[in-house]
Design a protein around this nucleic acid. Structure first.
Lengths: 354, 354
DNA sequence: CGAGGCTCAGTAAGCGCTTTCTACGAACCG
DNA sequence: CGGTTCGTAGAAAGCGCTTACTGAGCCTCG
């Protein structure tokens, strides 16, 4: 049913090699022949057989992107930036949703490896688990030995691996944010960390603790609350903070999504931001300026990080094996942080019934 | 470098056919042989060559999903539902981001076709453009003739095509929502439609107009404003409505994202929802209950629609060629709609400076 | 005018797998 | 004990493409 190169060749009165050459344009073909072939191609509605080409050429035209959550804008920005670069290199981007599961991450890496993907970009933070890291390192090794480039974006590649990484300065960003809060006079700060045992969460926590320590404040005098990276996690955490009447004048959310959730539940409880409590986010996602008040947050250059990762993956940018590109973080001071207000204490009574 | 079937066969002292049989388990192999092969497989770190297998077997293990926007939760829910079904059938899901561009949609369909994907699921509404529909129909025909199943989810397949469709009752949902508003006493309603010339937008507009007409109200006495399906579009539209001091007591947003944007800008302008103006959404995305007040909206069974589409795509559910599965819409009445209030007129003065 | 160079296109050898066909023992039967 | 059947595994023919390698014309030039 489907036309093959041979069919097209027969119709154009040439050999299949010539058709292939016309298709790929990497060998000279006389203009008249080219026209005849092009014609036949069109008449037969020819569509390249990707697998056959991949087999013969020992490579394919797909670039795989692993994301934790397709519906999270953080990954949306990353994925679309990488995709743009891939398109530039005529690669088809396959986005695979790992749902944050370490096992799925490995499974998808292996599947992409099977497909002989040209490159794999693993985005976002990952589990802080040596077993997982080792298995990842194994797959990276196999991928590289089979010619599949691997790039990590948002996390460092496993140690001693040949994969390049593009990392964001979560550490420094969190420190800067904490210093801003300190400078505004805040001392009792509640930190909502991201998911536990997760590289991104840990880096942010570490940065904040360091800034605190440098300012002569015992990090353990602050509140460290495990949360998630979703809006829902922020809603819940916010509600809990009010219910418990936690003694703090500022809340640092795990990211902007969480911050928007915190603000929403604060508002529902009559807590004013930033008058009563300041709230800060992280990432500077689009939502940061949609929210009222606009979020003080840390801008991560996601777009350009994604582009960089994409360029390394497509080979448009060459790096040494195991290279690490560090992207700076930048403070974005907006309306959600002000001088310390009355705090949350005593607000519990205002919690609306539900 | 990479081990092939032949390498494994040599090591296990069998033929490559036997190794293939062990791998696929579709032919009997003596237990002892199987063990030896399995061992060799492991020792050599064998990874199947996907393209070679796809070429020989004339099919592949990938299922492609086309989405308009990877960072929109509407598509996130759809994509993850489809993916779950795909995983069930041992297929690798590739999500392709078309950015809502009709051209990219075709390009990606073609790329998936090249890859001899097992199935393609096209999600979301699409352009109402006969040229596009014709070209889509062409690709569907080619796909089907090459054994790639095509399923549309959220839009009907082009006429006379063999592709199945899963569609949501946008029409009926919009009508029900309008009737709810009418019953609450609203007469001056502003409708923010989605993007123009888009099947989803049109269906929702049509449903609303019909309900209006049935109630003896001239649809043209309402305001129909072109907008988008994003939160940003809602923010902007909300701001404009206030600035223009539009005379209406209710706003029906294109979807929940837009509704949340409208509410945010209303709040920023001091317009109370629902006291001054009621606001309704569409889709019942997670954000609908995060927002304050919680959104009155139309629930679309996205998850189960996605699962259905996924099952048709994997072949787990058989349908007649061109079958259309209709998913019902259901009203979700919450807090953002109440009896008519003072409306927007005269609010323009309250618009905060920026 | 013949040797050497160029341009263009055909031949054919794979790429690594699946699968049909065939072959070989062993077990079984009359 | 010869013939049949069954279970198991090898041989080999592709799948549709890419890409050396080869060769046929034709032009150039000493």
């Amino acid at each position: 049913m489907a036309a093959t190169l041979a069919d097209v060749a027969a119709r154009a009165g040439v050999s299949s090699a010539t058709v292939s050459r016309v298709l790929n344009g990497n060998y000279p073909v006389a203009e008249a022949t080219r026209r005849r072939v092009t014609e036949a191609l069109r008449e037969l509605n020819y569509v390249v057989n990707g697998p056959a080409r991949a087999l013969a050429a020992a490579t394919s035209e797909v670039l795989g992107v692993l994301v934790n959550d397709v519906s999270d804008p953080f990954f949306g920005v990353l994925a679309s930036g990488i995709q743009r670069e891939a398109a530039e290199a005529d690669l088809l981007t396959m986005i695979c949703h790992t749902a944050g599961s370490a096992d799925d991450e490995l499974r998808y890496m292996e599947l992409l490896l099977r497909q002989r993907a040209r490159a794999i970009v693993v985005t976002g933070g990952g589990p802080e688990d040596d077993g997982h890291r080792r298995r990842t390192a194994d797959l990276v090794r196999q991928s590289v030995s089979r010619g599949t480039r691997v790039v990590f974006c948002g996390r460092e590649a496993p140690p001693d691996s040949e994969a390049a990484s593009v990392v964001f300065d979560n550490d420094g960003g969190a420190a800067a944010l904490t210093r801003l809060l300190l400078a505004a006079g805040h001392r009792r700060i509640a930190y909502l960390t991201g998911p536990p045992h997760h590289t991104t969460s840990s880096a942010r926590v570490a940065g904040a603790r360091q800034a605190l320590t440098e300012a002569g404040i015992d990090p353990d005098s602050c509140l460290w609350i495990r949360s998630g990276f979703s809006r829902a996690a922020g809603l819940e955490a916010g509600r809990e903070l009010v219910r418990a009447g936690v003694d703090c004048t500022a809340v640092v959310a795990g990211n902007d999504l969480t911050a928007s959730g915190v603000i929403a539940s604060f508002r529902a409880c009559g807590v004013r931001v930033p008058e009563d409590v300041s709230v800060a986010g992280f990432d500077d996602l689009p939502v940061a300026v949609d929210v009222v008040p606009e979020l003080t947050t840390v801008r991560l250059p996601l777009r350009s990080g994604a582009v960089t990762a994409g360029r390394i993956a497509t080979g448009a940018r060459r790096t040494a094996p195991g290279a690490v590109v560090r992207m700076p973080a930048e403070l974005r001071s907006r309306d959600s942080v002000a001088a310390p207000g009355g705090g949350l204490t005593g607000m519990a009574g205002r919690l609306r019934a539900h």
